[in-house]
Design a protein around this nucleic acid. Structure first.
Lengths: 199, 199, 199, 199
DNA sequence: GATGAATGAGAATTCATTCAT
DNA sequence: GATGAATGAATTCTCATTCAT
């Protein structure tokens, strides 16, 4: 890799980076193609050399990275063994993914903008990955009997809400330092039994 | 109440209801004034008899109800005593608010659309209400020592993520039946100590 | 009908008139929505109150009038009896239609712009009307045996090419005065036998 | 001629052929430079090595071939003698020109696209060639007295409308087989006298 | 209060053309 | 000669908002 880089990065990547930032800052609809082009420093029309349409840009950003996140979580869940370790691995994965690129994280998890509905059913999916790990743990009796969907919601909420707080400045910008705390909280939430619950 | 009621509800309310639904279904930007007018069955221009602008409509819907939710939560937190009871009361309040009008709930908590930033600092605010209750409990030593902001995130995540799942059909449409479970989970999460945490 | 007319005509009609003229003058593709709006004296967007799209405008202009011309020719062909009278009636009909509104005539017969392909098969159609009249005359032995399609082409060519010449100023602006000549020419062309033709 | 010929034809010719086809299929305005380049298999910019602009391409295609057709018709009309033979020669020439390259024929006679107006007055021109032949015949009394412009229109209509029908599949793709019929029809049309016409 | 035509400012997108490589 | 990214103007269309009726 050369030490000096004449052009900062290839245009396509620069478009992706700028678009991601603007989408997260203002929302997808409120971000015009011109906004993106100006942020990159090119003319509006130039964007269409790299993406078929604004929709294509949004979809590409979403799909590629959403699947990638799912795949990473899946691997982490697979490597670990035992319910708690798998949970810890996945939460750690979420935190790392967030801290690596908080903007991308927010785009994938919060902005979405109807892209979720476009995913072909069966596509790798972070939510399903968590769900499947928890469902498997439940099947093995590693967790108290409970609705796996609700269990998934609890774990995701415990991870994603701090991410939201980080986005709003209510919490520090990185989730990494809170990793252990989140794992402990998620584990506790999964093992909490409501008064009338079946033992 | 008049004996005869030609129109089912006054136009302003019908606009609010239709707008809320469309905002949640398609997003605020993707909903045009004409969409709303057509859903209500009035002419485009008629909307401006009731709201100064589309922004005013969005803002009114948001501000009124957001403050109202905050006030309700605040009262519930005040009536109860003891950290767990207060937590239970607030989570019950969230569930009721959701089940009463899931569309309004989603609009307030998920659609937002940048309205949050417009709130005058100091305005009653559901997040702050939860935060303040937890901070007070921490001050009284009713909870293990922890960052109150993170504690708030945990509680909100445990409530809001199931609401998201309900919106996507991953969980039943009402949160009420899960109330006890959510309370138990939140309480457990707040009391979980991560391995290296200060006692 | 009032003697004074405050507004020159309703906007929709003015759009149609202006569009027709521009389409014939410059072609459909080379005529922008702005061109039309400026000719009418309204803003671009106002056009969309009256037509769904530029395509809709083109199609409406074409379909309505094309079917109308076909219907008129059909009636004329029905009223007359005997091949020559029917031919005369249709050619007279073409000439009148042209002279009434040469711009509309040119739009329908020359500009077309791919609208022909959009007609549902079976729609009344000037070409088919002429074809059917000639085919019937052939079936009754009122004309020498020949391909009805070619016969149709001869008649249409004898009428439409003078219309083209009128458009380019090679012939006077009205076809009416040439009516008898065109009828005689068409009748002669239909009855001409090529040397080796079957008697 | 080189012994080896790597590419089937030189690029310029391939551009002309592809452009001609696209212009006839979709119209000139609806055909983009990129459409042409893709059809040829070259990059967009490469076209500008061969033609100054899209307009230049259109104009070159039109002017060269229009003049060539005129020249050919002129020669044919010159070689023959007597009005009927000259007419026959020209109609035969039209049919051959059509059947040789129907796409080129349609481009010249139907697509035109305002190129006609760009011709310098006085340029050789198929319509004028026919006109001049007929005017000469009239001057020599070889045809009943009539407007030479209308006579020209009749002859052209009798040739061009069958060509149109061939383009739309209403008649077979080649005009050659109908040559004699068209000549007979044109001759008859030129000699038909309308009832009240001067003898 | 209501209507709906009209406005005018963008929005996304296309496209002929240029130019560094 | 060829490439293809980039330009910048133009195009179709949308939409919040106004206003005469």
């Amino acid at each position: 890799m050369p030490i000096t880089m004449a052009r900062p990065a290839d245009t396509r990547t620069r478009i992706e980076t700028a678009a991601l930032r603007l989408f997260v800052e203002k929302g997808v609809d409120a971000t015009s193609v011109r906004d993106i082009a100006q942020a990159v420093g090119i003319a509006d029309g130039a964007l269409y050399r790299h993406f078929e349409s604004k929709d294509d840009l949004v979809w590409t950003l979403f799909e590629t990275n959403y699947v990638d996140l799912a795949r990473r979580l899946d691997e982490l869940g697979r490597i670990a063994s035992g319910a708690r370790d798998r949970l810890a691995a996945m939460i750690t994965g979420f935190c790392r993914y967030h801290d690596d690129n908080p903007i991308l994280f927010r785009f994938l998890l919060f902005v979405q903008h109807g892209q979720l509905a476009k995913l072909r059913p069966g596509t790798a999916n972070p939510v399903d990955v968590v769900h499947d790990v928890l469902a498997a743990a439940l099947a093995r009796g590693e967790l108290p009997r409970q609705d796996p969907a609700l269990a998934t919601a609890l774990v995701l909420g415990i991870v994603l809400q701090p991410a939201t707080f980080a986005a709003y400045g209510r919490l520090p910008a990185t989730l990494g330092p809170q990793r252990e705390r989140l794992i402990a909280a998620a584990w506790a939430a999964l093992n909490a039994t409501s008064p009338g619950a079946p033992r």
